[in-house]
């Protein structure tokens, strides 16, 4: 079983340039560590297979990918192209879908949303672009005989969803415990293959990604109104009384 995991290397947003800073050392988005762990567990359970990472970045940063490789992923594709700067969710999905297709996976895993952009739409966009079914917000995944059985988070509780493979599944945070890379894993990760591609290698035109492909623009960035801090008391064994009095004042008890 070949599992592809979409991972994102994240930095920080620069309020001056209105862009995400990607020229600093990037780390693996913690949200993605659950997908990586889930993939490793599924391949373990299946007794065969491999875990391949797909990621994109406007520079050639790989430190976040190395973390996921050190956890146990076998290989990675990094689409590294300055034309990717400013990509919106759809532009991102176009690139990921094209790179994932080359890997011919049985299962594609992703986080439900990244910690920085948090649009929450990329996994289902990738599925639509690839013509695959998708199940988002997975709490549990089991794979047997070409079918994934997924417990999906819902407003009311959970749905048990059956989905033929190949498929895209997004994983909610906290559902598995991501392993820490071992020393051996970290050493091995240095020699694991990371295939670096440009968007032209994927047959994607520059105007479909990055700032050019993002059919949206930021018109304003403003400081949000601050919420003023109130009274602070240090507990001397009686702070609960102050809380009760506060709740009383609010007439909620």
């Amino acid at each position: 079983m070949k599992v592809v995991v979409c991972v994102k290397q994240i930095g920080a947003l620069d309020p001056e340039t209105k862009t995400l800073q990607r020229n600093v050392k990037l780390i693996l988005d913690e949200s993605d560590s659950y997908g990586v762990e889930m993939a490793l567990q599924l391949v373990d359970t299946a007794g065969e297979g491999s875990v391949h990472l797909v990621s994109m970045v406007p520079n050639d940063e790989v430190s976040g990918l190395r973390t996921a490789l050190a956890m146990g992923a076998d290989s990675a594709t990094l689409i590294s192209d300055e034309a990717l700067a400013g990509s919106d969710a759809l532009g991102t999905a176009r690139v990921l879908a094209a790179a994932i297709e080359r890997a011919e996976p049985d299962l594609v895993l992703a986080a439900t949303e990244s910690s920085d952009g948090y649009t929450g739409v990329v996994p289902a966009q990738v599925a639509e672009l690839m013509g695959l079914p998708s199940v988002t917000f997975a709490k549990e995944i089991a794979v047997e005989g070409g079918t994934a059985t997924v417990r999906r988070q819902t407003e009311a509780g959970a749905d048990l969803v059956e989905c033929p493979l190949p498929a895209v599944v997004s994983v909610t945070a906290g559902v598995v415990e991501p392993r820490y890379p071992s020393f051996r894993g970290i050493m091995q990760a240095k020699n694991k293959p990371v295939d670096q591609l440009r968007i032209a290698d994927l047959g994607i035109a520059a105007e479909r990604v990055g700032w050019a492909g993002a059919d949206q623009e930021i018109t304003e960035i403003a400081e949000a109104p601050e919420r003023a801090a109130g009274e602070v008391v240090v507990d001397e064994g009686d702070a609960h009384e102050r809380i009760v009095a506060f709740l009383d004042e609010l007439k909620v008890i």
């Binding site: 639509e128 695959l132 079914p133 199940v135 009311a156 509780g157 959970a158 048990l160 989905c163 498929a167």
Partner: peptide, 15 residues
């Protein structure tokens, strides 16, 4: 829907 519609809910649980 074809292939994209392959996922089907088999059971629903209310928490």
């Amino acid at each position: 829907l074809g292939a994209v519609g392959g996922a089907v809910v088999r059971d629903r649980f209310t928490e």
